[in-house]
């Protein structure tokens, strides 16, 4: 087996090695940083990114993309924290999730039924959601903002002081996504639609149902991510999750999911999300100024994407 073929077969392994390399660099640069505590925190910070990137993975596999995930996540977080006091925790959480599902369904209707390009549709709904959120926040100005205890525990608490509670949410969801994509009919259909939509249609697949379900799932995952995030930061603001939009797409792409659809999986996305989180924490450790951080971030995404394209072409 040639080296290229080996890398192609085991691209996930290569990314995992790169991740290990980053952790190695951190131990060399700042010895004593990598402790069980640091690992727990890194995993915790990776959860919202991993969840949003999960939604993007589903859509990229089916040949779509979602630019509204950040607005949805911020919206779910804000709805939750501003309604927790009057409605109670459970209802407020459900309200946040429902908002995510609603935007996801709207995206799905536009893309699957009206055949709108996903980029434009989700750009539009993202603007709508963000604007509606600003208007809503001014309507309820002065109302008590409250992050319920349960949500704060989920977003920042650790079981036995070591394992973040958020992992108990992420791991089952991740397993569900990985197995669902590999084993379920719906999962296979996502790959099929992304690979060749016309062929799917001709073989009797109701493509619109597959796409609608995928967009709804993506909206829901983004809302869950927003809820975990507000638990971590303990305060919702209108642009809480905005910084996650591009990293979420980037995590899926450097995890080996093709932007053209039909190729990739959630396993790679998880490694991609961890990679970006560790990279971020390395750059923070090095006291890299924000602009430099941003440039390195872009450079790494570009380099990894280029490497993948070379390998898979």
């Amino acid at each position: 087996m040639t080296l290229a073929a080996f890398l192609r077969e085991r691209s996930l392994l290569v990314l995992a090695l790169l991740l290990a390399l980053l952790v190695g660099i951190i131990t060399v640069v700042r010895p004593g940083t990598v402790t069980p505590d640091w690992i727990a925190n890194t995993l915790l910070f990776a959860v919202p990114l991993g969840l949003m990137a999960g939604g993007e993975t589903l859509l990229l596999l089916a040949g779509g993309i979602d630019l509204s995930v950040a607005s949805v996540a911020s919206g779910a977080a804000y709805l939750l924290s501003s309604n927790a006091a009057p409605l109670g925790t459970t209802l407020a959480v459900l309200l946040g999730l429902a908002a995510g599902l609603l935007v996801g369904l709207l995206n799905g209707v536009g893309v699957a039924i009206f055949r709108v390009q996903p980029l434009v549709m989700t750009l539009g709904t993202g603007l709508m959601a963000q604007g509606a959120l600003v208007v809503y926040s001014q309507k309820i100005i002065g109302q008590e903002q409250l992050v319920p205890r349960a949500v704060a525990t989920l977003g920042s608490g650790k079981f036995a002081g070591l394992v973040p509670y958020a992992l108990f949410l992420w791991l089952p969801l991740a397993l569900l996504l990985i197995l669902g994509l590999r084993r379920s009919g719906f999962g296979r259909l996502l790959y099929a639609v992304g690979d060749n939509e016309a062929a799917c249609r001709l073989s009797g697949v109701r493509v619109w149902r597959v796409l609608l379900a995928a967009y709804a799932a993506c909206g829901l995952l983004a809302a869950v991510a927003g809820i975990v995030l507000v638990g971590t930061t303990n305060a919702a603001d209108l642009s809480l999750a905005n910084v996650y939009l591009l990293p979420a797409i980037a995590a899926a792409i450097i995890g080996g999911t093709s932007i053209f659809g039909g190729r990739g999986g959630y396993g790679g996305t998880i490694v991609g999300a961890l990679f970006l989180t560790v990279l971020d924490s390395l750059l923070t450790l090095l006291n890299a100024p924000e602009p430099v951080k941003q440039m390195l971030y872009g450079g790494v995404i570009l380099a990894l994407a280029a490497a993948y394209t070379r390998l898979t072409d």
Binding site: A250, E290, P291, V292, Q294, Y297, G298, L302, A305
Partner: peptide, 11 residues
């Protein structure tokens, strides 16, 4: 997307 990060950093 990546270039946007980089040019933004330069700015």
């Amino acid at each position: 997307l990546a270039a946007g990060f980089i040019w933004g950093g330069i700015a």
